[in-house]
């Protein structure tokens, strides 16, 4: 009688152990899958290197505009369209602006180049003067950008 009970107990223990091993194996698999998903997501999120892009543009206005006024108008338009957080990630800077020819160069992060071009082109007023700002070309170096401000015809 006792032998039979012991054998049943052993059988039950064996079954429980097997079940536990199975659950552990499944958990291990799940952990592996989740880790791989997280790795992929992290690799997508991390940008390897933030590169700079230089946008050559020209401003056509009723009257000639100044460096500071243009920079202010573009930055406020960018903030209005794409929020403050995108603005500091894009970090657009007016590198150079010739007030005689009304041409200049903007530096911006390559990830937000499209956002910047959209904001730049949608500037309609600078200090209450009607304006249109036209992006002419995008380059990877400031030297080339400066050359293009002289060479490009519009």
């Amino acid at each position: 009688m006792i032998d039979a009970l012991l054998s049943i107990l052993l059988g039950l223990m064996l079954l429980a152990t097997l079940m536990l091993i199975r659950v552990l194996l499944k958990l291990n698999k799940l952990v592996k899958v989740y880790t791989s998903i997280l790795r992929v997501r992290e690799s997508e999120l991390v940008v390897k290197k933030l590169r700079k892009r230089y946008v050559v543009f020209t401003a056509i206005c009723e009257e000639k505009v100044k460096f500071e006024d243009l920079a202010e108008a573009v930055s406020s338009k960018f903030r209005e369209l794409f929020s403050e957080s995108t603005y500091y990630k894009a970090s657009p800077q007016l590198v150079f602006f010739d007030e005689n020819t009304q041409r200049g160069v903007y530096r911006v992060t390559h990830v937000y180049l499209d956002h910047f071009i959209a904001a730049l082109g949608l500037v309609k007023k600078i200090r209450d003067k009607n304006c249109i700002v036209i992006p002419l070309r995008t380059t990877g170096t400031l030297k080339k950008a400066r050359e293009l401000t002289r060479k490009l015809r519009f």
């Binding site: 056509i60 499209d114 959209a118 082109g121 949608l122 009607n130």
Partner: peptide, 19 residues
């Protein structure tokens, strides 16, 4: 309606993409 109402087509393309 006037010359200052025009938007560069490339700007339109980029704006449609981002907005």
């Amino acid at each position: 309606k006037g010359p200052f109402d025009l938007v560069h087509p490339v700007v339109v393309v980029k704006a449609m993409k981002t907005l």
